[in-house]
Nucleic acid binder design. Structure first.
Length: 969
RNA sequence: GCCCGGGUGGCGAAAUUGGUAGACGCUAGAGACUUAAAAUCUCUCGGCCGCAAGGUCAUGUGGGUUCGAUUCCCACCCCGGGCACCA
């Protein structure tokens, strides 16, 4: 054997594998299947950097192992090539997008080819291929036929730079375009929209079944779908200036009424006004030319609506901004719970596209309403009382409950900055001064009296109440009854130390006045369960809404009811309905750009919207002279009259093609299915083949939690519903790939010029060392930093493998027991680690084994081959080369995965640490199943142990076989 | 603000999920080989005390449970990500 020369062996084997079709997926096979999938790349003009192959190498390793384990493996690759970046690249470089994409794909393939992947290239797909997008269009028509694709004229996100509409998912949280960073505007425009919200509940519920998805991705999807349960409640309107309007009825015979969505129907009695979004249909109606007489301050309202329409979304949705609004004069709403007449406002803190675009405002129990009410001086009515259950003496279910009024006196001494508490030595507790309110007493009198009786302090100044009462439930032992204490807190400051004398027996027995600092004046150190509320109100000066659940008050017959029960009961009571609403919006599906799938629809003057007949698919993307966006809301396709104007397929009359195209996410929503049957002309996938290969066994890729993975799940569920696929979820196991950053923790970017071309690294270190390093760099799902120094380590490892193979081959001896055992342990570990996507520790264990072999080369050729086999997925070229050097003629990658001998994996003896009082003091080698008696004897005979135990009492001797020995003295 | 992740040597990280913390790799230092350098090989490498044996502190911070805690519980701090005027 010569010296290790990666250039020679890598190109040799890549050519051989190609020639022999080593990795071709069998069309008919008795073997069990594995569909191992990467998120297919977007062939950008910049090319790949070292971060991209990480995921591809991982699935390559995984698929190679599975193939050797006897699976029929489908590990395909393809291109997601429609969409804005490809088009923008093409415009900038003055080439046709198709030409640019072809060039980019070739560049990507060149970069990938040197790494030595096991793709079956005969199944390559490309979303811009008419044979592919024919089916994307076909699926769109199926959605249209099921009513899931519809036209809408709602205001949509418009990117002024890319000159196209964006889906909500394409807009960043700060209101900028995800692609170009421009501020996104709202424009009313005719759009195709997919009714993804119809699937919201199922997508949410089925997340729970995806046990092999990272929790974070599922959580992001839950947030994105944003289901909240609540009630729709109807507020009738009363027109005060123009009562004739009160007689009007809608189509269902209802009077004018406003539906509102709320999650807090329990606070209905606390509603003090109604707020409508500026875009609310009722506001639009009232401002309409034809309804001039409905409200009194039309001009003012119109001005406000105009003003907020001119605000950007970012300004509109900034919670920190001060709230504004205008009262609509001449109309009031009727609270259905108590028939109270309440004012109606229009304010832009209410969003038109969430819920019903109208809210019932409960300033006492909602922060936003509270802020608005304070500003416009609207009433604040408490209807939910905070409620605590005493953690020391919780109420008993078998006892009667009595209600009692309490006062809590919070006393502060500004001079010492301390608080007064009572420390009771008899019961061992600290408490604030507490007392009952007696007949005919007000709260201040009661608190002042209690302070004097219990502490003697007589010169106190009452400052203020700490908000509304809090209810505390507890069991009062001395009275053998449950108590609901309605406690009010009163805040006092100490004026002077003047005291009166108090008796120290009776009720005061064991009591002692103590002044404590703020840090001790906290729940946990003191028994009062209400204390957190008092402290918060002390800090916030009572200037806060209580937004939690509690016990209802001031709510008529619902007083005393728990919030959660009241939500249902009050909704029923006022004839509302329980329902859920979603943050998720329907998917805006059209783009006013050239480089996308034409939407296969025809607009006929007579028949309306008619889908292109399926026999005429695909609707080919026509050639145009200008593919730059027009900016008018029409795509460049609209300019080609010969293409646009066609006879209606239904009536033969004059009709026009739809000129919008689909978004980039269309093809990627189902591409994985096409790999199964990529050349099928009659169906997007043959049904039997689909049944055989689906679901995808492993889906690996970067963070697309809220875009691709939402769309693809929705799309797949639709295909399932029309019987086109056999599973409800496409990807039962998702492996989330961490990014690779540069040495300084920065993302690789064209602008920073910090990209590292994998081809350069492969040229220098070889594909095998590169692959090993990409796997060794850290946990697969974790972000990693690229360090060229690390490449040295894996290259040394490959060279070591080369060296030990040659030495072992020449030695041609038997395997030493130590190596034998380690080999079998390593087989187990590598198998388990690859299965669990823990590639970094798999590589590490291979290194450990190589080091062990390197110590004396006492390994048989047979065992050496087993080592090569488990190395082969990571370093396919060098493993193949040595394999053939050892006389094999078939590919190592088609050989069988070694099995480990379970007897060899377990050690007969084991080294245990010996702890004395929790500290490791010595180490001992014992038989695996050594008896406790013999262990005890051996341990206490050891000098290192005698040193610690001599002359001491051994209180405890713990021996956990195979784990630890622990001595307590 | 709410919800997910995460915090371990100079660095990337391990640790059989309660049992000897720091495997494996990088960097650094010392040495061998060499005319020299590179490559390679050997040794050292968490902090502090010590010539050493050894001791002691140490897995973001502070408490707790336990014979024993990186792992479990409570409180808090920091970093990354998702959502956020969502009623």
């Amino acid at each position: 054997m010569n010296n290790y020369d990666h250039k020679k062996i890598e190109s040799k084997w890549q050519e051989t594998w190609n020639k022999n079709q080593t990795y071709k997926t069998a069309e008919n096979s008795d073997k069990p299947k594995q569909l191992i999938l990467d998120m297919f790349p977007y062939p950008s003009g910049i090319g790949l950097h070292v971060g991209h192959p990480r995921g591809f190498i991982a699935t390559d390793v995984y698929s190679r192992m599975k193939r050797m384990m006897g699976f029929n493996v489908l590990h395909p690759m393809g291109w997601d090539a429609f969409g804005l970046p490809a088009e923008n690249f093409a415009i900038k470089n003055k080439v046709h997008p198709r030409v640019a994409v072809e060039k980019n794909i070739q560049a990507f393939k060149d970069q990938l080819s040197v790494i030595g992947f096991d793709y079956d290239w005969s199944r390559e797909i490309n979303t811009t291929d008419p044979g592919f997008y024919k089916w994307t269009q076909w699926m769109f028509i199926q959605m249209f036929n099921k009513g899931l694709a519809y036209e809408s004229n709602e205001p949509v996100n418009w990117c002024p730079v890319d000159k196209t509409v964006l889906a909500n998912e394409d807009v960043e949280a700060d209101g900028t375009c995800e692609r170009c960073g421009a501020k996104v505007e709202k424009r009313p425009m005719r759009q195709w929209v997919l009714k993804i919200t119809d699937y919201a509940d199922r997508m949410l519920a089925d997340l729970d079944k995806l046990s092999k998805w990272p929790e974070g991705v599922k959580e992001a999807q839950r947030n994105w779908i944003g289901r909240s349960e609540g009630s729709e409640i109807y507020f009738n309107l009363k027109f005060t200036t123009h009562p004739d309007w009160n007689e009007r009825r809608d189509a269902d015979g209802n009077p004018a009424r406003l539906p509102v969505f709320t999650t807090r129907a329990d606070t209905l009695f606390g509603v003090t006004y109604i707020v409508l979004a500026p875009e609310h249909p009722w506001v639009t109606l009232a401002l309409d030319e034809n309804h001039k007489d409905v409200i009194d301050n039309e001009d003012e309202v119109r001005a406000y609506v105009k003003q907020s329409s001119e605000k950007s979304d970012i300004d509109r949705t900034n919670a920190k901004k001060e709230k504004t609004g205008v009262r609509i004069e001449g109309v009031v709403a009727i609270n259905p719970a108590n028939a109270q007449e309440i004012p109606v406002y229009v304010a832009d803190y209410v969003l038109a596209n969430y819920g019903t675009g109208a809210v019932m405002a409960v300033p006492a129990h909602d922060e936003r309403d509270f802020e608005f009410a304070k500003k416009y001086d609207l009433p604040i009515h408490e209807v939910v009382r905070p409620s605590v259950v005493d953690h020391v003496n919780p109420p008993r279910t078998d006892k009667a409950t009595k209600v009692r009024r309490n006062v809590h006196a919070i006393v502060y001494d500004p001079k010492t900055e301390k608080y007064l508490i009572i420390r009771n030595s008899k019961f061992g507790w600290d408490t604030v001064v507490i007392g009952g309110v007696e007949e005919g007493e007000d709260l201040i009198e009661a608190a002042t009296r209690e302070l004097q009786e219990e502490t003697g302090y007589a010169d106190l100044e009452f400052k203020r109440f700490l908000g509304n009462p809090v209810q505390a439930s507890y069991f009062a032992k001395h009275k053998d009854e449950n108590r609901n204490a309605i406690a009010s807190a009163l805040y006092f400051e100490l004026r002077s130390d003047a005291k009166i004398k108090i008796p120290t027996d009776g009720e005061n027995e064991g009591n002692e006045n103590v002044w404590v600092s703020k840090s001790e004046f906290v729940p946990g150190k003191m028994v009062n369960s209400e204390l957190p509320y008092w402290l918060a109100r002390l800090a916030k000066n009572n200037d806060e809404a209580y937004v939690e659940s509690g016990i209802l008050v001031n709510s008529g017959e619902f007083d005393g009811m728990d919030s959660s029960e009241a939500r249902k009961k009050i909704t029923e009571f006022v004839g509302g309905k329980l329902m859920a609403t979603y943050r998720l919006k329907d998917w805006v599906f059209s783009r006013q750009r050239y480089w996308g799938e034409p939407i296969p629809m025809i607009h006929c003057e007579k028949c309306g919207v008619v889908p292109v007949p399926e026999s005429e698919l695909p609707v080919m993307l026509p050639e145009v002279s200008h593919y730059e966006p027009t900016g008018t809301g029409e795509s460049p396709l609209a300019a080609i009259e010969s293409w646009v104007n066609i006879p209606c397929p239904k009536c033969g009359g004059a009709a026009k093609r739809e000129t919008n195209t689909m978004p980039q996410w269309a093809g990627s929503s189902w591409y994985y299915l096409r790999y199964i049957d990529p050349h099928n002309q009659d169906a997007f996938v043959d049904k039997d083949k689909e049944k055989h290969w689906m679901p995808v066994d492993i889906y690996s890729g970067a963070d697309h939690a809220t875009r691709h993975l939402i769309y693809a799940r929705f799309w797949h569920k639709f295909l399932f519903d029309i019987g086109a696929v056999s599973t409800e979820e496409p990807f039962p196991r998702l492996e989330f790939l961490g990014y690779i950053l540069d040495k300084n923790g920065k993302k690789f970017s064209k602008r920073d010029g910090n990209g590292i071309d994998p081809t350069d690294v492969v040229n220098q270190f070889g594909a095998d060392a590169f692959r090993l390093y990409e796997m060794f760099i850290g946990p697969f799902e974790q972000t990693a930093r690229w360090d060229m120094n690390g490449m040295v380590g894996t290259l040394r490892f490959v060279e070591k493998v080369w060296k030990i193979s040659e030495k072992a081959k020449n030695a041609n001896g038997a395997t030493r027991e130590g190596i034998q055992k380690l080999l079998h342990k390593t087989i187990k570990k590598v198998s388990d680690d690859i299965e669990g996507f823990k590639f970094n520790t798999a590589v590490s264990s291979l290194m450990i084994l190589a080091n062990e072999i390197d110590s004396d080369y006492q390994i048989s050729v047979l065992d050496l081959k087993a080592f090569l086999k488990i190395l082969a997925p990571f370093a396919p070229h060098v493993a193949e080369e040595i394999w053939h050097e050892l006389g094999e003629t078939d590919s190592i990658h088609l050989s069988d995965w070694p099995k480990y001998d379970s007897n060899l994996v377990i050690d007969d003896t084991v080294k245990l640490g010996i702890q004395v009082n929790g500290k490791v003091r010595a180490e001992i080698e014992l038989a695996k199943d050594e008896s406790e008696e013999s262990v005890r004897e051996k341990v206490f005979a050891m000098d290192e142990i005698k040193k610690w135990t001599d002359g001491k009492d051994v209180k405890k001797f713990i021996y956990v076989a195979g784990k630890i020995i622990s001595i307590v003295i």
